[in-house]
C-alpha cells in the first residue's frame, strides 16, 4: 500500500482528501504541525506528497525547495493559484505535477496513480487468475490463446483490474478514457464494455465484469 502525506492547512479539505485517498486504498498521513514540516515528511517517508502552497510558516514552494536538498519523494503541488507562472516555478523547484483547486477527484486519483506508477516502475503486465494482460501492446493471453484489445477496451479493462474488488463508476471509466484522449460518449462506453466482455468470453472467462445496477462495474 502506497503511503501519501498531505500538507494542507484547511482542515475540512485535508480530512476529505484523506478520506478520498483512504477509500482508494492509500495509507494517508496529515501534517498538523507546520513548524517542522520537513522533519515530519522525512520521518514518515511517504511514497508521495500532496503539498499546498499557501500554508502557515514556510510556504509550499520554500518547503519544496528545502525538501529537494534531502529527498526525491514525488511531490504534487495542490493549490488554488492558477497561473502558468506559479506552475512553472513549482516545476522548476522540483514538483512532479501541479493541480489547481477545486479539482476533479477522479483526475486527482489518476494523476497520483500515474506518478506512483512512473516512480515505482510498475510493469505493464497485469496478472488476473490465468490471464496475462499486457497493457503496453494491448494483448491478453490465456495459456496459448491470445487476443488483442483496442485502446479503449484496454483502458477500461486495466482501470477495472487496478481497482479490483471495488465498484467502479461509469464516470470514473469515462474520466480515465478522456484522460487518454479518447473522448467517447455514453453509448460508445456501453459498446466498448460489451465488446470487452465478448472478447473475454472467447478466452473462457464469462462475466468477470459484473454490472452493479445504478452503481457501476466490478471485477472481483
Amino acid at each position: 500500500m502506497s503511503k501519501i502525506m498531505i500538507i494542507e492547512d484547511d482542515e475540512v479539505l485535508s480530512l476529505e482528501l484523506k478520506e478520498l485517498l483512504t477509500l482508494n486504498g492509500y495509507e494517508v498521513e496529515l501534517v498538523k504541525d507546520f513548524k517542522n514540516t520537513i522533519d515530519a515528511i522525512l520521518n514518515y517517508n511517504p511514497d508521495l506528497l500532496l503539498l499546498d502552497i499557501n500554508i502557515p510558516y514556510l510556504n509550499g514552494e520554500v518547503i519544496l525547495q528545502n525538501l529537494r536538498k534531502k529527498s526525491n519523494v514525488p511531490v504534487i503541488m495542490v493549490t488554488s493559484r492558477n497561473t502558468d507562472m506559479d506552475e512553472a516555478l513549482s516545476i522548476s523547484l522540483g514538483a512532479d505535477d501541479y493541480i489547481t483547486k477545486p479539482y476533479n477527484p477522479n483526475i486527482l486519483l489518476l494523476r497520483i496513480n500515474a506518478i506512483l506508477k512512473r516512480v515505482n516502475r510498475i510493469s505493464n503486465i497485469i496478472n488476473y487468475k490465468t490471464l496475462i494482460i499486457n497493457t503496453q501492446n494491448g494483448t491478453i493471453k490465456n495459456q496459448d490463446k491470445e487476443i488483442i484489445l483496442t485502446k479503449n477496451e484496454m483502458i477500461i479493462f486495466a482501470y477495472l483490474l487496478n481497482n479490483k474488488d471495488k465498484i467502479v463508476k461509469r464516470d470514473e471509466l469515462m474520466t480515465s478514457l478522456w484522460n487518454n484522449e479518447e473522448f467517447i460518449n455514453d453509448n460508445a462506453l456501453t459498446v466498448n464494455i460489451s465488446r470487452l466482455r465478448s472478447k473475454l468470453f472467447k478466452l473462457g472467462y464469462n462475466n468477470i465484469i459484473e454490472t452493479r445496477k445504478g452503481q457501476g462495474y466490478i471485477i472481483s
Binding site: 484547511d10 476529505e16 478520498l20 488554488s80 483547486k101 477545486p102
Partner: peptide, 18 residues
C-alpha cells in the same frame, strides 16, 4: 478572494464526492 473561495469549493466538492 477568488483563491479563497476556491478552498471551500474544493472542500464542498470533495465532501459531496466522499
Amino acid at each position: 478572494w477568488i483563491h479563497e473561495v476556491k478552498r471551500p469549493l474544493a472542500s464542498l466538492s470533495l465532501t459531496l464526492n466522499n
